[in-house]
Design a protein around this nucleic acid. Structure first.
Lengths: 132, 132
DNA sequence: GTTACTGCAAACAATTTGCACCATA
DNA sequence: TATGGTGCAAATTGTTTGCAGTAAC
């Protein structure tokens, strides 16, 4: 088993996600860190994001039709993606209880996790729509 | 407004998705059609898949961390993706009633649609796991 | 002193696009 | 014959990877 080392870059990635607003893309994290530490590589950002997700420090929000996003919220929650501008925000909804128990026949599949992703038009884009 | 024309390629794409097993990727459709019609272009397959989705003939299944898939089922349903092999199959579960009404505060967002995507390990991969 | 990690660039996968030619209406 | 569609290749986007050098332990 590999023994992980603590590196400056790993700290920078973790802190960047904590400091920035939530739902940041790997590229946004990269650009943010580059301000203070210009030599950081994009590959390093991707690698450390994955490691931090694996370690449970961050959560990966897999967005269909768009780059993956990362946040630091521990509690499970759902996301909306604006179909106009791509912005992702949290959905103000309680978790659906016992969702996995609602499956009638698993067909031998071992269910691990689920995610609900919403689509919508954010208030900013709705306003812009009206002005057209 | 653009008036769509009926083309051989569009028919080939629609028929391919109908004939193949469900949840096919654009590339699988392309390879399938190429057997009988070798000159078809990948761009044409992508373009026609989008048009057919727009027309309601097909449904796009947006899979996080994997290529989009297409099927022809009209009724809304949910999908599982095997984290080992990437295979996508249907989940045997009823739709959650009034899901959009469970949202406490929309924050001005106009909610259009939602999708539940499950993760799991399919029976084939579970068997392979045991043999290791 | 090992060996995991970095930075960089190249590779990769999925998809979109520009454009000259083709074919439907 | 007007113009939407095709095929092809190049471009784009998001992400992964190979490798020589660097640094954490």
């Amino acid at each position: 088993m590999i023994i992980r080392r603590n590196t400056i870059q790993k700290d920078l990635v973790r802190n960047a996600v904590y400091e920035m607003k939530r739902h940041v893309t790997a590229n946004e994290v990269y650009e943010f860190i580059k301000e203070a530490y210009p030599t950081i590589g994009k590959g390093t950002v991707y690698r450390n994001l994955d490691i931090l997700v694996e370690e449970g420090a961050l959560r990966k929000v897999e967005v269909p039709d768009g780059p993956n996003r990362f946040d630091f919220t521990l509690k499970n929650h759902y996301h909306v993606r604006c179909v106009k501008c791509g912005e992702v925000s949290d959905v103000d909804m309680d978790e659906i209880p016992n969702l996995l128990e609602r499956i009638h026949d698993t067909h031998g599949i071992e269910y691990l996790d689920y995610d609900i992703s919403f689509k919508g038009i954010c208030s900013k884009c709705r306003k812009e729509e009206k002005n057209e």
